[in-house]
Design a protein around this nucleic acid. Structure first.
Lengths: 201, 201
DNA sequence: TTAATTATATACCGATCGGTACATATTTGA
DNA sequence: TCAAATATGTACCGATCGGTATATAATTAA
């Protein structure tokens, strides 16, 4: 890979650490100094490795979706032989556990960033990225519901997009509640009630 | 009322303007200069009238709940002759309209502040105030549900606190969706589906 | 061994942060 | 009319903001 001094830190580890700082404090309330202290590196190293604060934030969002969100979304389609109601429940409980995990900041990083966007804070590029992520998530959920409705395994009293929006709304709410410190157990109860609304079976 | 020069601005108007700036940008991303520009006054006037940034933020939160939130909460109990299902629906649609109103910042100010809290940003006093506000809101909703259950007008398959938490969760989610730009109409659809989950009638 | 290359550490940049000292303008009570 | 009291406008404070210039240390290719 050519000449040059070796990096003294692991870039992937550093990205995960930076993500947790942003996740906890948000974009505006996180200073570059907060990041360098959490990563144990100096500013020039951070800028050389990740560009700037905005680009690092974008990378943190991508890291979050690919490493924390994606495995949970997988539960919507696997195991394929499981009934859709069970898969949706497993997915929702997975999100709930993620946002109430004691080892990571409370709440959902995407939801927190979404709430931070919409004002003057957060650059336009990031707002666009968030919009894209949210849209992809909604589409994934919508398609699962639509497929099951076509197979007749799910009642068709509501449009799949509307059901997806409803379920996402509950999950967003659960993320806010988790941020407030609500326990995993309390949040699971919300999932139970929310799922009982599904016109299924 | 004593001597002294008269204030050249209306304090109540100024508080409402300040609230909107905080509502849009959040606590961390709002600078004192942002506030003085929006209010059309100088920094010493702002500090003399409202203390400091933190105290002004607290006053803005109180102003929001008393002037924007309280009138909607009233729909939970009035008109008393209306069935509880209708009152809850009117309340939820009221919140939905508030957070998707084109004349005010998108989303719920309390939800946004709650997401901002939990990290290093936002002083402890404010976090406590938010916790108190949220708890009061939840209790109000819980009592309405409990009363109706005692009267036998609502099924008792779930505890009133759990139902309240579920409804709040949906509303929090709606606030996040509104912040993302979802229309009033789309959000009303979420309310419809959410209410169909209630074990009522 | 040397030149090119890359990372690190220190020290600094102009801009902005929340907050205030101070002088001036305005109002009321005596 | 004059003194006390309150508000305003300017100009400034030290601290921190995001970002970088520069020098040095380490690594590889020649």
């Amino acid at each position: 890979m050519g000449a040059g001094r070796k990096r003294t830190f692991d870039k992937s580890d550093a990205l995960d650490k930076a993500m947790r700082v942003f996740w906890r404090n948000g974009y505006s309330a996180t200073s570059v100094t907060d990041l360098t202290e959490a990563l144990g590196i100096n500013k020039p190293s951070l800028y050389a490795a990740f560009g700037n604060k905005e680009q690092l934030f974008g990378a943190a969002l991508e890291h979050y979706t690919s490493h924390y969100g994606a495995p949970i979304l997988q539960r919507l389609t696997e195991p394929a032989e499981a009934p859709v109601s069970e898969r949706i429940k497993a997915y929702m409980l997975g999100i709930t556990d993620l946002v109430s995990n004691k080892a990571t900041p409370k709440g959902c990083f995407i939801v927190k960033s979404n709430c931070e966007a919409g004002g003057g804070d957060i650059p336009d590029d990031i707002s666009l990225l968030l919009q894209t992520m949210r849209s992809a998530h909604q589409q994934t959920l919508r398609k699962v519901i639509a497929t099951e409705q076509e197979r007749g395994l799910l009642a068709q009293t509501e449009k799949p997009g509307d059901i997806a929006e409803y379920l996402l709304s509950v999950l967003y709410g659960i993320s806010v509640l988790a941020r407030q410190g609500k326990s995993r157990k309390e949040l699971h109860k919300v999932v139970d009630i929310a799922i009982s609304a599904l016109p299924s079976l």
